[in-house]
């Protein structure tokens, strides 16, 4: 009842007015400084001698616009590679992260293999792995070995990204307080059940932002499979470029990648907020 009746006092109204005026002032300053900044940028870039050539080669958007259908068609292959790789990476990375936290001497070989795998594939350049797997493996002519560049590309990306993501998961698992484990074990849950139902769910929530980081990175790195001869969006742009030697085709492909990653970022932010993971970001101080 007080909530509806309450009116701010005279003093509080002057405080609120002060806060509003400060907020207005901040807005104004932001607006002004942005205008000055953009103005200076346009002026200095626009008047520089090389600008007309840059614009013609990089920003002839009427030309770039015509690429759009072709590029988007080629993008489908990147999206396929990305989605399939992501599923494999999540599964394998989770397994390796859990293996690395196993205790007891019996598991030493498993722990050792998992650690060695992570150390090696985190250190190898992705391009090298793509060459080794994508070109080296078919050259062996092993019976039953895959020879489709698509499959080989997915394997190479999975090998590299699993190593990264396993470390992200492991950091998450280790950040869960030991008291959580103690509570779960005290209820009679096994080590495995504790992992599955108590530790891992909390770990995943904490590492969602870095996990997303790795997936955005993966999204971009799908373009590297073009070295195996897969006609993806980058190779398509390269074909266009070789016809008129203008770089706007690459700019368009780049824009498509950026546009693709932004919604993903916003989505995780939204998920995090909805679950109330305020962390130290919440509150007035």
């Amino acid at each position: 009842m007080t909530a509806t009746q309450w009116q701010p006092s005279e003093l509080q109204r002057t405080r609120d007015a002060y806060r509003r005026s400060r907020a207005r002032r901040s807005w104004l300053i932001a607006l002004l400084s942005s205008a000055v900044f953009v103005g200076a940028l346009v002026l200095s870039v626009g008047t520089s001698p090389g600008w007309p050539r840059v614009r013609e080669s990089f920003f002839d958007l009427s030309l770039g616009w015509q690429d759009l259908p072709g590029l988007l068609r080629a993008l489908w292959i990147n999206v396929q590679i990305m989605l399939i790789t992501e599923v494999f990476v999540l599964v394998f990375a989770a397994i390796i992260a859990v293996v690395r936290t196993l205790q007891g001497p019996v598991f030493f070989p498993l722990r050792f293999v998992a650690a060695a795998y992570v150390d090696i594939f985190r250190g190898l350049p992705l391009l090298l792995v793509l060459y080794l797997v994508g070109l080296g493996l078919p050259a062996l002519r092993l019976h039953g070995a895959p020879d489709s560049p698509f499959v080989l590309g997915v394997i190479a990306l999975t090998l590299t990204y699993t190593a990264y993501v396993a470390e992200v998961f492991r950091a998450g698992i280790e950040s869960v307080h030991p008291s959580q484990r103690a509570a779960a074990r005290s209820l009679g849950l096994t080590h495995g059940q504790t992992m599955r139902h108590v530790v891992f769910p909390q770990a995943v929530r904490r590492v969602l932002p870095p996990l997303l980081n790795d997936f955005v990175s993966l999204q971009k790195d799908t373009s590297l499979v073009s070295v195996l001869g897969i006609i993806d969006i980058v190779l398509t742009a390269e074909n266009y470029q070789s016809q008129d030697f203008k770089f706007v085709h690459y700019v368009m492909a780049g824009l498509i990648f950026v546009v693709m990653t932004v919604p993903l970022t916003r989505l995780t932010d939204w998920v995090a907020r909805r679950q109330g993971w305020q962390g130290s970001g919440g509150g007035v101080v």
């Binding site: 509080q12 405080r15 002060y18 806060r19």
Partner: peptide, 16 residues
């Protein structure tokens, strides 16, 4: 939301 909190004679609830 409202009110005066004076510490040493200074209103510390003031946004200033």
């Amino acid at each position: 939301d409202d009110g005066v909190v004076e510490l040493d004679g200074q209103d510390i609830a003031d946004p200033r």
